[in-house]
Design a protein around this nucleic acid. Sequence first.
DNA 1: CACTTTTTTGTCCAAACTGGAGAAAACGAG
DNA 2: CTCGTTTTCTCCAGTTTGGACAAAAAAGTG
Lengths: 227, 227
Amino acid sequence: MSEETVVPSVPPARKQQQRSIVTQQKLLDAAVEAFSENGFKGTSTRDIAERAGVHHPLITYHFKNKDQLWRAAANHIFKAFTRSLAQSLEQNKDMCPKERMARMISAYVKYARSQPALHKVMVQEASYPNPRLDWLIERHLKPLFDATFGMLVELQKLGVAPPGDPALLFNMIRLSSGGLLALGNELKASSGIDVDSPETLDAISELIIKVFLPGEMPENWKQQTAA
Amino acid sequence: MSEETVVPSVPPARKQQQRSIVTQQKLLDAAVEAFSENGFKGTSTRDIAERAGVHHPLITYHFKNKDQLWRAAANHIFKAFTRSLAQSLEQNKDMCPKERMARMISAYVKYARSQPALHKVMVQEASYPNPRLDWLIERHLKPLFDATFGMLVELQKLGVAPPGDPALLFNMIRLSSGGLLALGNELKASSGIDVDSPETLDAISELIIKVFLPGEMPENWKQQTAA
DNA sequence: CACTTTTTTGTCCAAACTGGAGAAAACGAG
DNA sequence: CTCGTTTTCTCCAGTTTGGACAAAAAAGTG
């Protein structure tokens, strides 16, 4: 009897219908887009419903209220991103640390292009202190940071990444890729950069790697991991 | 240089009063802050007036309407920034190209810290295509880009900056400094970076320079500029 | 199939907020 | 003191806001 139907996970007395899932998905995608463009305050639930091509009371039905919808949207986008990142890590687990990180950066650049909202949403919320930002940090950002931090420190020890605060390094890489692609609308007109071209994406990844991972791997790096 | 009558459209038959100037300034500062936090659509003129501690019809009086106020606010912030940048260039015109660019980056980092709105406003407008973005690019971004582009190309020729698309390089530097500081609210909690500490600012500048201008100046660089 | 739950539709609301207008008062430069 | 400049106060007409709710439609289940 609890009204805590956060999204789709309390009492499945009966199976959730397919059209319901579709509606939720459409709403989530639309919400991500709208929130990333206009921020939480600047986005109306009606705008979201319209983008999703759905009647707006469905938001109340599926997500309770605007705040819950925002959270669900954030989970939605980070879930997809985390999956993509984990996949990259899995595929390259046998590579050397530099190559592994390089491919992770490439994967990030590609993802940021297909889903610039990932970065935009964070920027929108970070533009002034608010409870959603805290939630976002604890729930999504910190885990991501923690997972990458160790890799960067290792690369510094190996002389691949430049010395300096690894936290700064991490965020600069993040901004040079995600932040850059989030500016897509601007870059073409201001600097002649076309982020829609695959060659540009490759050039971005390449440059980031060259700049942030300039060193070569030492030849004997396997020693430390070997049994 | 034509003095832009950004504010009052009619020439003053009598001198502008001091309190009027103060009001305009307060409104501009408040507008910059509000627009940078919530974007154009998400900001109301009443919100701006309230932040400025001023009655809201004064916006109509001084700036005609919301759109004009936004433009005046953009001019306001870019004017201050351009002044700060020109000052850095002037002070270091006798330095070698690398040092000149390094100090410019430092100046930018410092400015971005004291006025993170500079970057935020651009991000807000770039989040979806709109006429203000076009205006911003033509009026402020492109001139800035053009002024810096040549310096970067020269540094690449000298082997100081890494090869690759200079436009990408420019924007990565911009994001690693301005974009990073615009995330100030987030960085402390997510990565333990305190952008309020002067040491952090120095570390940021230093890292950017080390990473984006890794090469040393050749000893004979004076040849080409000497008459 | 009948039945019951899930999902969608259509309508409504009360309140807040929107950008802006305009008269009149207050102020200050000359 | 005079008169243009600036501010205050009040008003408005329209839109938008997030959300409530009953009833209809659709679909899973036995």
